[in-house]
């Protein structure tokens, strides 16, 4: 660059010409790289424009409109009616639907987290960790239709779970048919299905705990419970946060399992927000209210995720 700026007497020397053409070449190269880069990005940018920005805008428009779903010209502005309608007296959106959603997510996280901490700390002590992990992973690669139907069948009066209950002398339970037990029953399945990935993340977290910490604790005569509470748990914080946030996200928005197992029933005992949105739209053609419900759920998901991040940061000494 400095050479390119020397006085014009140098212009005629071959060296200066070489430098100039190198600079011009670099500019040309830069420009060509920009063109190539945007060519490489073109499919992605086009996709995001048509299937991300356009739908978001469309959904926002619908959430503040009344529309029968036929001609785009029929979309009528409705202000915030769709939103207020969700929370009006007699609407089931707040209770039981949003409450169910929170209970479903909370129950899943609590079960999966407890189970995975237990299993991960135990697996860490065993040989053949890969084999165990494979077994715990099976539900993750299985379609929700298989998971849902197998468990639905296992919950039936003549199914495996009641078979076991009867074998040990207990009465049968109408798991999915009873409004009181339906939600906990699907929570168990959701937690069962997500245990493997949580175990994986926590096992990886455990491996990053230096062996010397355990040796030092052993020298000090610390028992297993103390070691777990004072060493394992604090050092596992990042992994726990990760599992917590991702499982909560999944729990708040997933409704495929519920669709397969109960379709929100009996009554609305297992109806969750995303399922209700789906039903409002594709069952009743109420696109406006459905879109409003989607945004309300989105706000809930965001708020809960941010709250978890904030809480973990506040209570963590190292963060």
């Amino acid at each position: 660059m400095v050479n390119a700026l020397v006085p014009e007497t140098a212009e005629r020397t071959p060296r200066a010409r070489a430098v100039r053409s190198a600079v011009a070449g670099r500019v040309r190269h830069r420009r060509r790289q920009t063109v190539v880069a945007y060519l490489f990005l073109a499919p992605v940018l086009l996709f995001f424009a048509v299937f991300l920005l356009l739908p978001l805008g469309f959904a926002l428009l619908l959430s503040t409109s009344r529309w029968s779903g036929f001609a785009l010209g029929d979309i009528e502005p409705a202000g915030l009616d769709n939103f207020t309608g969700l929370f009006a007296d007699g609407s089931t959106f707040l209770t039981p639907i949003l409450t169910n959603t929170l209970l479903f997510a909370l129950g899943t996280v609590a079960l999966a987290l407890t189970g995975s901490v237990l299993v991960a700390t135990c697996i860490d002590r065993l040989r053949f960790q890969g084999v165990w992990r494979t077994l715990y992973f099976l539900p993750i690669v299985t379609t929700v239709v298989a998971v849902g139907n197998v468990w639905k069948y296992m919950y039936e009066p003549g199914g495996l779970v009641n078979g076991v209950l009867n074998a040990v002398g207990l009465d049968s339970v109408a798991f999915l048919a009873d409004p009181d037990t339906a939600l906990p029953s699907v929570v168990v399945v959701q937690a069962w299905a997500s245990l493997g990935s949580a175990v994986l993340v926590l096992t990886a977290g455990l491996k990053s705990v230096p062996e010397s910490y355990y040796e030092a604790a052993a020298l000090d005569g610390a028992g297993p419970v103390t070691v777990f509470r004072r060493i394992t748990l604090p050092l596992l914080r990042p992994s726990l946060l990760f599992v917590c946030v991702t499982q909560f996200l999944t729990g708040l928005q997933s409704f495929a399992l519920i669709t397969v197992m109960t379709r929100g029933g009996p009554g609305d005992a297992t109806d969750v927000a995303a399922l209700e949105m789906y039903r409002l739209a594709f069952g009743y053609g109420d696109w406006g209210t459905a879109s409003a419900a989607a945004f309300v759920l989105f706000a809930v998901v965001l708020a809960i995720t941010l709250a978890q991040l904030w809480w973990f940061r506040r209570t963590g000494e190292d963060a």
């Binding site: 992605v44 959904a59 989607a294």
Partner: peptide, 27 residues
């Protein structure tokens, strides 16, 4: 590759991961 707008596009890509799938079923 080095080109103007690279950081913006990268941030856009990260932002797309924030939106949950259920927002998009209807639209």
């Amino acid at each position: 590759l080095r080109f103007p707008g690279r950081d913006f596009v990268f941030r856009l890509v990260l932002a797309t991961m924030m939106f949950p799938p259920f927002l998009f079923f209807v639209p």
